[in-house]
C-alpha cells in the first residue's frame, strides 16, 4: 500500500521531471539557427529577378538608352538588400547572397550594370545570354534558400 508521504514524493519527482521537460522544450524551440520563411523576401527576389532579366536582354544596346530602367533595378536591389539586412544575424546567409548580387565589383547583377554603364557599346549576344543564365541562377539560389526555410 502506498502512503500519502510516498505519493507526495512521487508527485514531486514527476513535477520536477515535467518542469525540466517543459523548460528543455522551450529552450530547444527558442534556439533557431536561421530566419523563418518570409513571403515578402520571396516576392522581392522573384520580382527583381524578372525585372533584371528583362533589362539584361536589352544590353546588346548601349546603357545610356536604358538609364531609367538601370536606375530602377539598382534602387530595388539596394532596397531588397537592406530589407534582408534588417532581419539581423539569423539572416546572415541570405544577406551574404544579396551582397554578392549587389556588389558593384563582383560579377553578378550590380557588377554587370556597372560594367555596362562604363562602356560605350553594348555587349555581344553570347555574353548577354551567358549573363542572363548567371543572374537567373543567382536569384534562384536566393529563392531556393527562402523556400527551404521553416514556414510558420
Amino acid at each position: 500500500m502506498i502512503t500519502s508521504s510516498e505519493k507526495r514524493t512521487e508527485s514531486s519527482a514527476f513535477g520536477k521531471w515535467l518542469c525540466g521537460g517543459v523548460i528543455l522544450s522551450f529552450f530547444l524551440a527558442g534556439c533557431a539557427t536561421i530566419t523563418v520563411y518570409d513571403p515578402t523576401s520571396y516576392k522581392n527576389a522573384t520580382d527583381l529577378k524578372a525585372e533584371s532579366l528583362l533589362l539584361v536582354q536589352k544590353s546588346t544596346d548601349t546603357a545610356d538608352k536604358q538609364t531609367d530602367e538601370i536606375n530602377k533595378v539598382q534602387l530595388e536591389l539596394q532596397q531588397d538588400f537592406e530589407y534582408e539586412k534588417g532581419k539581423g544575424n539569423l539572416n546572415s546567409l541570405t544577406v551574404r547572397q544579396w551582397q554578392l548580387l549587389a556588389d558593384p565589383n563582383g560579377n553578378l547583377l550590380a557588377g554587370f550594370l556597372k560594367k555596362w554603364k562604363s562602356q560605350s557599346a553594348g555587349f555581344s549576344q553570347a555574353f548577354v545570354d551567358g549573363m542572363s543564365k548567371n543572374i537567373s541562377d543567382a536569384f534562384d539560389e536566393i529563392i531556393r534558400l527562402e523556400q527551404h526555410k521553416v514556414k510558420q
Binding site: T33, T94, R96, G106, G111, M131, N134, D137, E141, V150
Partner: peptide, 30 residues
C-alpha cells in the same frame, strides 16, 4: 566578356550555392 562570365559562375555563384546548402542545413536543423 568570357572572363566576366567565368568569374561569375566559378566564384560568385559557387559561393551562392554553398550559402544555399548551409542555409538548407540550418533550416533542416530547425
Amino acid at each position: 566578356e568570357f572572363e566576366f562570365l567565368a568569374a561569375g559562375r566559378l566564384k560568385d555563384l559557387a559561393e551562392m550555392r554553398s550559402l544555399t546548402e548551409a542555409g538548407i542545413a540550418a533550416a533542416t536543423l530547425d
